[in-house]
Design a protein around this nucleic acid. Structure first.
Lengths: 146, 146
DNA sequence: CCAAAATAGATTGCGCGCGATTTAATCGCA
DNA sequence: TGCGATTAAATCGCGCGCAATCTATTTTGG
């Protein structure tokens, strides 16, 4: 029925590969800021809305606490944020940016723009691709559950 | 000039996220075969052409020897392949599938098909997306070098 | 022919990313 | 009210993925 797949026939490999390429592109841009690529993504989220709980951040990034807790602890050690137990619910830990963490947004201002330029895509093309990717992700997650 | 980016405005995040979703989808399919997702990708390549050197595999997958050597050693320990020094050039190590490694292709036959189905994309849509992703990867790698 | 440069892999240390498990707090329901 | 179930984080072990470094082999120029 189905022929044995080749690597280049696999959509997943193109995603895998593009993801590694983004990581490699970000590295020299984020190194001067002392950030890794996943740390940057977490900060982008916190710059949008401060004081989120670990699981809220995990929900947005699609990461488990087993990944996030150490990542956030490293950002805390770096002085960019503080991790405080929620008084309303002592199970939760809320993440608050420090002044230094907020200031970093200014220093990181050029990064996203630089990456956007490197994609070689126009704004409309990028949006079209994002729409397709979001649908793809959604389909994969649905299939995974069932 | 540029507004501070949001997470959902970042194309890289959609790629990052789709990549994680693929990994999660593959896991229950590959666990019974005793394979991880990157190991599966390496095997797909070897099923296409046996006897490749570590750097040839690395070139195709976009991985360094520091990633591949341990991965291939694990597959060797699992009895799926052998790593043999090339007599023509003793610096090179060539990878040869064992009978067990070749047999695994049959057992893994359904995996790619199942994943392809889970994407919810028609063959033509998948190809269009792959084309766009290959162009994207290429643009990112060009930007990275310069 | 031989020493310096280049190349192929391997090793090390670090940061993800996850499943499995643990601990602590809250919820639900009798 | 109280006790079992649920939820939130944290911890642990493992496998990537990489930069930096090391070793061994081959290539190149003098």
């Amino acid at each position: 029925m189905e022929q044995n797949p080749t690597l280049s026939s696999l959509l997943c490999f193109d995603i895998y590969s593009a993801n590694l390429a983004f990581g490699r592109l970000y590295k020299p841009l984020l190194d001067p800021l002392g950030l890794t690529y996943p740390q940057y993504l977490a900060l982008v989220l916190l710059w949008e809305r401060d004081g989120q709980s670990v699981s809220e951040i995990g929900g947005s990034l699609g990461l488990e606490s087993s990944t996030l807790t150490p990542l956030l602890k490293r950002l805390e050690t770096a002085g960019l944020l503080r991790r405080l137990r929620d008084n309303e619910d002592e199970r939760r830990v809320r993440i608050f940016l420090t002044d230094q963490g907020r200031d970093l947004q200014t220093k990181a201002a050029g990064v996203a723009e630089c990456v956007a330029k490197a994609t070689g895509l126009g704004a409309d093309e990028a949006v079209a691709m994002q729409t397709a990717l979001i649908r793809l992700r959604s389909a994969l997650e649905t299939a995974q559950t069932s």
